[in-house]
Computed example of a mutant assay.
Amino acid sequence: MIINLGLPKTGTTTLSRALRRAGLSTADWKVRAGQTDDAAMHGAFVGEILYTDYFATGDPLARLKVFDGITEMNALSPRGNYWPQTDWALIDAMRTHHPETRFILSWRDPARTAGSMMRWKAMGTRRLPRHQVPGLPKGWGGTETELARWIDGHQRFCAAIFAGSDRFLAYDIEDREAPARIGAFIGRALPWWGVSNSNPEADEAAVPDTDPTEEAGTADEVPPLPREAR
């Protein structure tokens, strides 16, 4: 299992596409119909599934282990606000229940990432400041300086909890050697590497483009998990 702890706009969609081209199945912020036979997961946020299974069984990957990798875990919408990659308890539970799991942190310069977030479907200008996000309380995140400080903190958090571990790889998405480093880390060469979901002509955001003040049922709204699956 390959778990990416990267934040939005750090090449998560590129990583997902690269792993799929290498023959691996990935869940990228939500589970699509056809990716699994478990209909209860179709259309559900990856973060929601992780938390549902963690509190039900102690194992966040109880159902998502059918995938070879998770390339982005967060989601932000009127229905849910999930940032598992910032939660030590969930990360530790993954390591405890699945010690063979390999963790990756896709990252880039915090200032550049913050600038990208500010331009990405009102993520920085509107959506993040209106929500409580771990390390970024409601009311903060509306400037590139605030976002960059939050991003830097997350990157240092991941480095600290995996210090000395051979099951962790942090890579700069702008490093030309990144594909080779990832391939060596997971034991499988990546036949493709490029840029996906870039500004400004991206088709679907890693954080859905919805606003809590808008009506429910917008194109990016995801149906909730059935009650029996909670």
Rank of each mutant, 00 (worst) to 15 (best):
L5H: 01
G6W: 00
L7G: 00
L7A: 02
K9S: 01
T10N: 07
T12Y: 02
T13C: 07
T14L: 00
L15T: 00
A18F: 02
A18G: 03
L19D: 09
R20M: 11
R21L: 09
A22W: 05
A22M: 04
G23E: 05
G23D: 07
S25I: 09
S25L: 11
S25E: 09
A27M: 06
D28T: 04
K30F: 15
K30Y: 15
R32Y: 11
D38G: 03
A40E: 07
G43A: 10
F45E: 11
E48H: 13
Y51T: 11
Y51D: 09
T52Q: 14
Y54C: 04
Y54P: 06
A56L: 14
T57R: 10
G58S: 10
D59N: 15
P60D: 05
L61R: 06
A62D: 15
K65P: 00
K65E: 08
V66R: 11
F67P: 06
D68M: 07
I70T: 01
I70A: 01
E72Q: 13
N74F: 11
A75D: 08
S77H: 14
P78V: 06
R79G: 09
G80N: 07
N81T: 11
P84S: 08
Q85Y: 08
A89W: 06
A89K: 12
D92V: 04
D92I: 05
A93Y: 02
M94H: 03
R95K: 15
T96H: 14
H97A: 15
H98M: 07
T101V: 15
F103T: 03
S106H: 01
P110L: 05
P110R: 06
G115R: 00
R119G: 00
A122K: 07
A122T: 04
T125L: 01
T125G: 12
R127Y: 02
L128P: 01
P129D: 05
R130L: 14
H131E: 10
P134K: 02
K138Y: 10
G139E: 08
G139L: 07
L147D: 03
W150L: 12
W150A: 10
I151C: 03
H154G: 08
H154D: 09
H154N: 11
C158D: 04
A159S: 15
A159G: 15
A159K: 15
A160M: 14
A160Y: 11
I161Q: 11
F162Y: 11
A163W: 08
L169W: 03
D175A: 13
D175T: 09
D175V: 07
E177S: 13
E177G: 15
A178F: 01
P179N: 09
A180C: 02
A180W: 05
I182E: 10
G183L: 05
F185G: 01
I186D: 09
G187T: 06
R188V: 06
R188A: 14
A189I: 04
A189V: 08
W193K: 08
W193V: 06
G194L: 03
N197L: 00
N197M: 02
S198C: 00
N199A: 03
P200E: 08
A205E: 12
D209V: 07
T210D: 04
T213G: 13
T213W: 11
T213C: 14
E214M: 11
A219H: 13
A219Y: 13
D220A: 15
P223G: 06
E228H: 12
A229P: 04
